[in-house]
């Protein structure tokens, strides 16, 4: 594979060393990545917005389409305040802000997730579609409806994790400071 690992971590994010990161990945400020999470940037760079949580066994993949090759302009952009819970697999084409992917959910390629969506635990979404804002997918039949109330914010959890995780884990050091980078240029 020609892609070399190029992981940029902005200050204030907590990325555990035991996570698997492959390809060109950028973590914005305040992200929390738990141990044994997997992020694979195969088809192009992944940029993860501020204050996202990626839990254990969660997989975020930017997979190559058949016959395609790595393309630096093919960016998978993930918005801010998203939560990827234990064991979820996300290969979506684009992800907005404030979404929750619950445990063991699967979001396939071609799905575009807007903002404020919740994919319930164990739900598989494989067909290409655009999820309107505040959609909730729930239950055995994967019913969809619009959220009645907004999702609570995850900032409190992030604050807690940011305090606790450094006490127990080896972290990848933030290696990219936008302020300094600007002064270099």
């Amino acid at each position: 594979m020609p892609v070399e690992n190029n992981v940029k971590i902005l200050p204030k994010s907590v990325v555990c060393e035991e996570s698997t990161l492959r390809g060109d990945i950028t973590f914005s400020a305040g992200c929390v990545v738990h141990p044994s999470a997997t992020i694979i940037a195969e088809a192009g760079p992944i940029i993860i917005g501020e204050n996202c949580i990626v839990e254990e066994y969660a997989t975020i993949a930017h997979r190559l389409a058949d016959g395609a090759s790595y393309d630096t302009n093919n960016i998978l952009s993930i918005g801010s305040h998203n939560v990827f819970e234990v064991g979820c697999t996300v290969e979506a084409a684009r992800i907005g802000d404030k979404n929750v992917f619950e445990s063991k959910s699967f979001v396939g390629r071609g799905v575009t997730v807007s903002s404020g969506c919740v994919i319930g635990a164990g739900i598989q979404m494989r067909t290409a579609q655009l999820m309107p804002e505040n959609t909730i997918v729930y239950g055995q039949q994967a019913l969809q409806r619009e959220a009645i109330e907004k999702q609570g914010s995850q900032t409190l959890q992030i604050d807690f994790l940011r305090k606790v995780l450094p006490n127990y884990h080896h972290l990848r050091k933030p290696n990219y400071d936008p302020k300094k980078a600007r002064s270099v240029i």
């Binding site: 254990e56 066994y57 234990v86 064991g87 609570g152 409190l156 959890q157 604050d159 807690f160």
Partner: peptide, 18 residues
Amino acid sequence: KNSVIRPPYKQFSKGIAF
């Protein structure tokens, strides 16, 4: 194999607790 044991959290008005 591959199971995850993860203490639960609850969100309060001031911060969260596991």
